Amino acid sequence: MYKFIERRRDKQRAVPMQVLALGFSRTGTTSMRIALKKLGYNETNHGFDVWANPLEMEMWTEAINAKFYGKGKLYGRAEWDQLLGDYMAVTDMPHILFAKELIEAYPEAKVILTTRNVDSWWKSYHDTIGSALNSLIRDITVRFDTTNARKAREFWHLASLAMFGTTNVTEEVAKKRYLEYYDEVRSFVPADRLLEYRVGEGWESLCQFLEKGVPTEPFPKTNDTKTFQNHMKRLTVSVWGRLVRQLAMPAFLVCCACFAFYYAGGIRIFI
């Protein structure tokens, strides 16, 4: 099942884990990733990194299966170092599935909870991640894709099931889990180690908490709903474009063969 994990079994932590930004997806986690990099946390692991890295996806899958489905060994500090040893900070999904485990594994790391109004969060989630996961056209698309897209889609379905406990993520289910999650994380972290950062606050509270100077440029704002939707459209077009190119030559050769067969048969009949 796993092709890549063995490459990381003996890996040690290369840099200290300093920040655990454990806000729910669609609470400015992409902007937080950029902000942390600007503040010197140059290696910040985000869901986008997991999406693009089959090895990381396999290890997260192993961790999810162990925690939520009783398959395999639960991850401890050694396994987290193997997976996240090159990173100084983390944010986004699937990291939030292991908030308690990461907080316990890295007691020296500061914890940031990016937050937003639950109704605003649900609308953003529903129009982006929720829509993408429930899209029939994207399910069909990845079935024809020979790249990482199919495995990535399977992985995010698994992660979503682990987070919400159901594939039928209604507004009621999602909002309930959202509020429960924040209460859980608050109970895991001493107050002096935790910053609750509301999306749109700017640099000041974040820099004060992390004891960093305030940058002169505005706080980053990226991956809004429109950007996410456009990205998914481009991904779908890219997959279908690649499929068409892959099928064009075989289709051409089949047509040539059919024409040659028909033409040769026609000659024989005429003779």
Rank of each mutant, 00 (worst) to 15 (best):
D224K: 08
I5G: 02
G72H: 12
Y181I: 00
D183R: 15
E108F: 12
K175D: 03
K100T: 04
Y106T: 00
S160M: 07
L206M: 10
T91N: 08
G213R: 13
V118A: 10
E180Q: 11
K11L: 12
G40E: 05
D192C: 08
V237M: 11
I64K: 02
E56Y: 08
I137F: 11
M32S: 01
V90A: 02
F24I: 03
C255D: 08
R26W: 07
R245M: 14
T236F: 07
E217I: 06
L179K: 14
M1Y: 09
F24E: 01
E79M: 14
W80S: 02
A52T: 04
L179N: 10
N42H: 14
G130I: 02
Y75D: 02
A264W: 13
E184Q: 13
A260Y: 11
E62C: 10
N223K: 08
V90S: 01
Y125H: 10
A35L: 09
E43D: 05
S160Q: 05
M249W: 13
A149I: 13
M163R: 09
N134D: 13
C256M: 15
S31I: 04
G200C: 07
Q246L: 10
E217M: 09
C256P: 00
R150L: 12
R186D: 05
V189A: 00
Y262H: 08
P190Q: 08
R177M: 09
I137M: 11
S31N: 04
D183K: 14
K71A: 12
F164L: 03
L136T: 14
T27N: 13
R33P: 03
P16S: 03
V254H: 05
Y87Q: 03
S187M: 09
I137T: 12
E43S: 08
L179W: 06
E101P: 06
N168T: 08
I137D: 12
N65Y: 11
R33C: 12
E171N: 05
T29P: 06
N65G: 08
M32W: 05
V244E: 05
M93T: 12
H95D: 04
F48L: 13
S131M: 15
I103S: 02
L20R: 00
E201I: 09
E101K: 03
D86K: 10
F164H: 03
R177C: 09
R33M: 11
V239A: 07
A66N: 09
T170A: 07
V254Q: 01
K151G: 04
E6R: 10
T27Q: 09
I64S: 03
F48S: 07
M57T: 00
L22M: 06
M163Y: 09
M1K: 10
K67W: 11
D224P: 05
V254E: 02
F24D: 00
D145V: 07
D192L: 08
L243E: 00
L22I: 06
Q12F: 06
L36F: 05
F188M: 03
A52Q: 12
R143F: 11
F24H: 03
C258T: 05
N117K: 09
S31D: 01
